[in-house]
């Protein structure tokens, strides 16, 4: 087992853990956004969908445990890497024109990640918690568009839109970066990876944003 621990604690091993958990979290986003888009089909469709999920609770709960582990792993590892990297650079330059040699999104992964984490905590504490407390009665749609923690609350709506923009920036760097870390940097597959990356960093955040924009800002669903 020592070879395994050596790998996990090596710089490249830690990067690979970041990449694997990151890609798995990206896959979760697909499932999540599809569920959200059901809101556009109206209250009945959305409530039926959420109740259908409730009927397979053991499966949902086990997947939630895996998901939580992925999040914790990704965040813990990210914090660990950030601390180590700070230690490796004890003195900063008086002048550093980083913008001339790298993209802002690649240099702010810790910042965007931390802000997304804050959003995640508020998200779990509000909509997710209310969904757990709700049993039947078809109130799920109402929770989402309510003025309390739903999209009729302008602050919640704006925070949600902002958080999804941050998610887009995080994945702008994160998605393609994961493949470089796996060692899949090849002129043949680069266009494919960049193409799929657009789906994750642009299309998915926009799809998430479409809901607060429609229900919150444009007054849809009322």
């Amino acid at each position: 087992m020592s070879w395994f621990l050596n790998f996990m604690n090596s710089s490249i091993g830690k990067k690979m853990q970041m990449a694997i958990t990151g890609i798995l979290l990206c896959l979760f986003l697909i499932v999540h956004v599809i569920g959200n888009l059901v809101l556009f089909a109206g209250p009945n469709a959305f409530n039926t969908y959420v109740e259908a999920l409730s009927s397979v609770k053991p499966l949902v709960r086990s997947l939630e445990v895996v998901l939580a582990l992925m999040f914790i792993w990704h965040i813990f590892n990210g914090v660990r890497l950030t601390i180590e990297n700070r230690k490796a650079t004890p003195e900063k330059y008086l002048m550093n024109k980083a913008a001339e040699n790298s993209k802002l999104t690649s240099r702010t992964m810790g910042l965007t990640g931390s802000l997304i984490f804050i959003f995640l905590v508020t998200h779990l504490g509000t909509i997710w918690r209310l969904f757990q407390l709700e049993h039947g009665g078809g109130k799920f749609y109402d929770i989402v568009i309510s003025g309390r923690f739903g999209f009729n609350n302008i602050y919640y709506t704006l925070i949600y839109i902002f958080a999804m923009a941050l998610l887009g920036l995080h994945l702008r760097h994160g998605f393609q970066s994961a493949f470089q870390t796996f060692g899949w940097n090849h002129s043949k597959y680069k266009p494919l990876i960049s193409g799929v990356a657009v789906f994750f960093w642009l299309i998915i955040p926009l799809a998430f944003m479409s809901i607060p924009i429609y229900f919150g800002l444009l007054g849809g669903g009322n």
Partner: peptide, 27 residues
């Protein structure tokens, strides 16, 4: 040394313009 975070600043500043594809190979 710190851990790589794929900013590719190294490739941009390398006087010999060495590609980060070598980093992928090492990974």
């Amino acid at each position: 040394f710190g851990n790589c975070s794929n900013t590719y600043a190294c490739e941009a500043e390398c006087p010999k313009e060495i590609s980060v594809s070598h980093i992928a190979r090492m990974n």
